[in-house]
Amino acid sequence: MSNRQIETVCQHQTIALSATILALDLGTTTGWALRSADGIITSGTASFKPGRYDGGGMRYLRFTNWLGELQRLSGPIAAIWFEEVRRHAGTDAAHVYGGLMATLTAWAEMRGVPYQGVPVGTIKRHATGKGNANKAAMIAAAEARGFSPADDNEADAIAILHWAIETEGGMA
């Protein structure tokens, strides 16, 4: 399902209100937040740093397996929102992000799970009131909601999840 198709799905289903949804901050250390169908929110980080003897694709295979395990444990994922990054500090970060996003979107397409990127400024503005909030402000915003994020990656995922729930994925 394409980004455009998620809008149609969201308009005809109450994805953000009654189903399992996943929010991701993609990177070598990926932040994640999941709201289960019963309303319980869990969050954390997952490392996809390659091992010393890993081939170039192992990071993405581990990410694929992690997504499958997350779905197996949480039940069917109805929708995925992820931080849509348009500018990266370095070439390596851009390559990792692109690979993870390609893996995520292929995984979702194969399972018919709608997905949508959310611009960084939108997430930061929703969480803190400032579209250019720093990492400390994002962590503080997550803490203000009662979470104890391990780092800014988890805090960003929590912010994406709350944005998706509170705006019905940008539809409200």
Rank of each mutant, 00 (worst) to 15 (best):
T128R: 06
D92C: 07
R72N: 15
D156F: 12
L161M: 06
A141L: 02
T45Q: 13
P119N: 08
A157H: 04
R125G: 09
W66N: 03
R35C: 09
G90F: 07
A164K: 03
A93R: 07
E83Q: 10
I158P: 04
R111A: 10
A142F: 02
Y60M: 14
G44C: 09
G75I: 00
R125K: 13
V118C: 10
L104R: 01
A106C: 09
N153I: 06
W66T: 03
H88Y: 10
F147D: 00
S148V: 15
G56K: 05
A137R: 09
V85E: 11
G98Q: 04
I139L: 03
S36G: 14
H126C: 06
V96S: 05
R35M: 15
G51P: 01
A159N: 05
T45P: 07
A78D: 01
T122L: 12
P119D: 07
R52E: 14
S74K: 05
N134C: 12
Y53V: 09
F48A: 08
N65S: 15
A137F: 07
F48M: 09
W107R: 04
M138C: 02
I160Q: 00
T103S: 15
Q116V: 04
G117R: 01
A142D: 02
A94F: 10
W81A: 08
N65H: 15
V96R: 01
T128M: 07
V118E: 04
L61E: 11
P149V: 09
G57P: 00
R111G: 09
N132A: 14
T91Y: 11
V120G: 12
G112V: 00
G39V: 07
L161D: 02
R87W: 11
A127P: 08
R59L: 11
F48V: 08
A127E: 06
Y115W: 13
T103D: 03
D92A: 14
R125L: 15
F82W: 10
L73C: 15
T64G: 11
A46F: 08
L70A: 15
M138T: 04
Q71G: 14
G146H: 07
V85R: 13
W107F: 11
T42Y: 06
S74A: 15
R125F: 12
S47H: 07
G57H: 06
F147W: 06
D38Q: 11
T45N: 13
G55A: 10
I40K: 14
A142Q: 02
R59F: 05
I77E: 01
E83C: 09
L70I: 14
T128D: 07
A78S: 03
A79F: 01
F48I: 10
Q71F: 05
A106H: 02
M138D: 00
G98H: 03
K130D: 15
F63V: 12
T42W: 09
A157N: 02
K130A: 15
A79D: 00
R145L: 13
Y60W: 11
D92T: 14
E109Y: 08
R145A: 06
G131R: 12
I40G: 07
G146V: 08
E143H: 04
T64K: 12
